[in-house]
Every structure is written in C-alpha cells, then in structure tokens.
C-alpha cells in the first residue's frame, strides 16, 4: 500500500510544481507593456518608508513622494490620460522577488543601478542621480569631502557601505558609527560630529525636515536610481525610457523635482537630473 503511494505522491508533487512554475512563467513572461495596455494599468513597486521618495502619509493613508509622482506621470505618458498607476508597497528585500514573480510590472523605489543587478533586471536610464554626500550644519567649514581633516568626526550608520566609502574618500577623518539614521541625525544636531554621511536622497530628507542642516559638496560616489523592469521585457523598458525623455523635455520632470526637493535648502537640480 505504502510503496505504491510514494510514486503517486512524487508525481502529484511534480505536477503541482509544473503548474505553479508554469503559471509564474506565463505571468512574468508575457509582454508587460501589452498586458498593461489591455488592463489600462501599470503596477508599480514603491517604497513607503523613505522621506521625499515614497512615504506613507499617516493622515491620508496615501503614499506620497517623488517616486510616486514619477510613477503616475510615466503611467499617463505610456497609457494615456486615463491610464491607472497601481501602487504596491515594497521594501529593499521584497522588491526583486515581487518583480520576478510578476506581482508588479516595474520598480521605482530608490533603487540603485548596479552591474550585479543589471545581470538579472532591465534598468531604464537613471532618473535620479543619487550618491553618497555629506549633511552639515549651515555655515559649517565643511563644504565637501575634501575639507575633512585629521580628527574631524563624521557620523555614519553601522553596517552600511557608506562607512567604507567615507573612509576611502576621507581617510584622515574619524568615523562614528551609530545604530540608525535617526540616531545619526540626532548626534549631528548635538554636535557629536561635523557631518552625517549616506545617500543624498536620505540626507535631503533630513535637511527638508530641519532647514538648519544642508547637503554639501555634491556626491562623491555614483549610485544612480533607475526604474527596474524584469529581464527580457525589452518593449516595456524602451517605452519607459522614451517616457522619461518626454517628461524631461516637457518640463514635468523638473516640475516634480522642484515639488519635492525645491524646499530643501541649497538643493541643485543639476546634481541629480
């Protein structure tokens, strides 16, 4: 009895696996641009925890930010004025699996274009020129990484690559590593260091929150944000690239940048576009 059951179960399992993977494949492999046109909807993976890019507004219950507005504008550009942008919250850990699984059509979530990622994903042209920068108190003698001298203290976050980067860029400076961004910013405010260093996107968020602190010196690493689409979705990638160009030309891009970053003291659009 039992012996006869085993091959049966194996067969059933194989069948199920085939079915599941087959379904997944069919969803992810179909042309997303075509599917989007059919449903008149693009499903976007967005962040809901990053100030200025994609942050949940606890009052309205809506996600708001530059990434969100870009997603909406791109949807209208691709599908026409009646096209719908459906927003799905993702985190840094979940965004790639969700895209691969076909749950979302594209990721616009402060995602840096890297060679490793390009092996498994398609990227559009950069839409935001992110990179590591410095946040300092207004009027600080630090205007760029080059001003960091021996004994100057720079605040970073434990376990992030930004600590390695600053140690390479300013080897004489002392790096204080705190446990998270909030603590790092608090330490800067109480004068424990001359600067906080991490992605400029995050630093702009801090600066926007407290105007006495400004981002200085541009970026000393290049970590441009791009829109990710599943590998092989050439039609959608090309269409998306085209749409970004259009937004840049017709002034929408600049309008959105200004909407979100115009309020950040000392912000220069040339640094990021």
């Amino acid at each position: 009895m039992k012996k006869r059951l085993v091959p049966l179960m194996v067969a059933a399992l194989c069948g199920m696996l085939l079915l599941v993977s087959g379904c997944g494949k069919s969803l992810a492999d179909q042309d997303v641009l075509q599917h989007a046109k059919q449903t008149n909807t693009i499903v976007w993976g967005v962040k809901a925890d990053t100030r200025l890019f994609g942050l949940m507004n606890t009052k309205s219950g809506r996600i708001e930010g530059f990434d969100i507005d870009m997603a909406k504008a791109l949807t209208k550009e691709i599908l026409g004025p009646k096209g719908k942008a459906q927003l799905v919250q993702v985190t840094s850990d979940t965004r790639v699996p969700m895209l691969k699984g076909g749950n979302i059509d594209a990721i616009i979530a402060t995602m840096t274009i890297t060679p490793d990622r390009e092996k498994v994903l398609n990227f559009t042209q950069p839409y935001f020129n992110a990179g590591q920068s410095l946040l300092v108190k207004k009027g600080s003698r630090i205007h760029s990484v080059k001003d960091l001298k021996k004994g100057d203290k720079v605040i970073g976050v434990q376990g992030s690559t930004s600590v390695d980067n600053i140690q390479k860029a300013a080897p004489q400076a002392t790096v204080l590593q705190l446990s998270d961004y909030a603590q790092a910013f608090t330490a800067l405010k109480s004068g424990q260091g001359l600067a906080v260093t991490t992605d400029n996107g995050i630093l702009y968020g801090m600066s926007e929150q407290d105007h006495r602190y400004v981002v200085v010196g541009g970026t000393f690493t290049k970590e441009p944000y791009g829109i990710a689409i599943n590998k092989g979705q050439t039609a959608m990638t090309q269409r998306m690239d085209q749409a970004i160009n259009t937004l840049r030309k017709n002034g929408t891009y600049e309008k959105l940048i200004n909407k979100w970053f115009g309020n950040v003291p000392g912000f220069d659009i040339k640094e990021v576009e």
């Binding site: 605040i155 204080l176 330490a187």
Partner: peptide
C-alpha cells in the same frame, strides 16, 4: 557602543558588520 564610545562592544559590532 550606542554612543560611539570606541569601547570593546563598539569595535565588536563594527567587526561583525564588516
């Protein structure tokens, strides 16, 4: 370690993180 005081635990955390 929580206030970047360069003590044993702070150095340990950094080593663990790298």
């Amino acid at each position: 370690a929580f206030v970047a005081g360069f003590d044993l635990m702070y150095q340990g955390k950094i080593i663990a993180n790298t």
